[in-house]
Amino acid sequence: MSILLTEKTSVLIQGITGKEGLRALTAMRAYRTRVPCGVTPGKGGHVADGAPVFGTVRDALSSFPEINVSAVYVPPSAAKSAVLEALEAGVPLVNVMTEKMPLKDAAYCLAAARERGARIIGPGSLGCIVPGIGRLGVVGGPLVDDIYAPGPIGVISRSGGMTNELSWLVRQAGLGQSAAVHVGGELLIGTTYADVLKEMENDPATKAVVLYAEQGVNYETEIVSLLHDGGFTKPLAVHIGGAFAETLPSGTVVGHAGAIVGKGRSAREKMAALQDAGALVAERFENLVELIHSTTHA
């Protein structure tokens, strides 16, 4: 058993004829993830690197009814209509890779997904991977087999690059990952740390979780509540990046759109709250390894 991806996962790429869509197609196939087709409005009937292209999500689904995930690689201005189209066609999991999606469009899509009971990961997500099963997007890039291997550690990250870096720490410790999820770095995200933790709580493959979060927009309070309510009972090790940013003027955005100084909470405040709630907090990012060991040997 695994979270988000299974042997039955079948992925549609929206924006499959663009550069990023094609790159994702290659990456997913290379990791033995099924991508039967894609969609690009106005390009129905074309073929993208051997995959049939449809003009609409509905057309794609009527030819490939097994599709249960959409990976969205369209420009920011087209993201809202692409996501809504996938939701309206009944796709239950939409991983939005588009970066810089306007906030009002993101809010619109998240509300629409909530109403339908569908899940959005992102926007601004790089994707997710269940080692040995498949990946959505390009997580791991060409080094995927160096960094990822099936194992007991769940990985959650606010940053795409740090998803790899954290997973690599896990591998260097001689362990593997049950899943790695990049939730995205934007202010509004459809699947938060706590949402993934809930999935990992119910996932027998996950024995412990490591999490990279950042100063700024506050999604950590949800984790605190989840821990207090007993909604997550496995060991959890967390690092919050951006302690240095306390010295920057309020309103400065560092690295990710959601890492806004003075909005939400500082790295120190977040670490203190999580520690109080029972999470293991790593002062140094690299110490997450030792915390992993202390949890898995316990």
Partner: peptide
């Protein structure tokens, strides 16, 4: 390179 890496490295420099 990378938003997250930039934060982690700035923190490491400060330490």
């Amino acid at each position: 390179s990378g938003g997250g890496a930039s934060l982690v490295n700035m923190d490491a420099m400060q330490r």
